[in-house]
Design a protein around this nucleic acid. Structure first.
Length: 235
DNA sequence: GCGACAG
DNA sequence: ATCTTGTCGC
């Protein structure tokens, strides 16, 4: 028996899910009404199992008012393994997504889309599973090559697969001198459309508003939960 | 064989 | 990804 049969099985799931990817524009950027961002936080990230909190925030793409928000808390058994992030984090996102009363036209995920060794980053994983448009927006590079990026705000260069020469996404300098963010389509979008949507979602911070606020929402729920449990211990 | 490696 | 304050630079 092979030692890493476990990861081989997970790869098979990724290859299977990849068949559901459609990297074409299934939505028109001018017709987007609701856009969402999601994120996770953990209570004890270095232990497994540990508890995780997954949130989704839905915004009106025009006014940027929050129109819906949900979260889900559960035990997470899967550890973080580069290339397999979705198996650790996607379940909580999917759970939170089910609770939404208003489903977004597109979902921005904290992580990569097709900028992944098997073109199945967490954004693609979620997009393929739910069959919805998704965008991967990561803070660090996982896979792909790109040229040097100019220092000015708004500059970007393509992120490509060195093997196939195909464009996976874009590296974007979302603010003046900050380290860039990595944008790639998850599902139902082209790399260029993913870039344009993220650019339209920037509100003066390094991260696009949906992802940025989802992260803050995560932290507030986390703090609230810790307070409750501390209070419980007093009795 | 070695380095790289989202959250 | 968590625990943590002030502080330096643009």
């Amino acid at each position: 028996m092979k030692k890493n049969n476990f990861l081989e099985d997970l790869k098979k799931i990724q290859y299977s899910l990849r068949k559901k990817l459609i990297l074409e524009d299934k939505i028109n950027i001018d017709k987007i009404r609701y856009i969402a961002g999601c994120d996770l936080t953990f209570l004890n990230p270095f232990s497994n199992p540990c508890r995780g909190i997954g949130v989704i925030l839905v915004f009106d793409f025009k006014t940027w008012k929050i129109v819906d928000k949900t979260y889900s808390i559960d035990i997470v058994n899967m550890p973080y393994i580069p290339g397999f992030l979705a198996f650790r984090e996607a379940p909580l996102i999917l759970s939170a997504y089910k609770k939404l009363k208003i489903k977004p036209d597109v979902l921005i995920v904290d992580g990569h889309g097709i900028a992944h060794p098997r073109k199945m980053g967490i954004a693609s994983h979620i997009g393929a599973t739910l069959e919805i448009p998704t965008i991967g927006c990561a803070k660090k590079l996982l896979y792909g090559k790109h040229e040097e990026l100019p220092l000015e705000k708004g500059s970007y260069v393509p992120l490509y697969d060195e093997k196939t020469k195909e464009i996976l996404g874009y590296v974007l300098r979302s603010r003046k001198k900050v380290t860039p963010i990595y944008i790639s389509p998850g599902n139902y979008l082209t790399p260029l459309t993913a870039l344009e949507i993220v650019k339209k979602s920037l509100k003066g911070y390094r991260l696009p508003e949906p992802t940025r606020l989802a992260h803050l929402y995560c932290n507030s729920i986390r703090k609230e939960l810790l307070n409750k449990e501390k209070f419980g211990k007093l009795f």
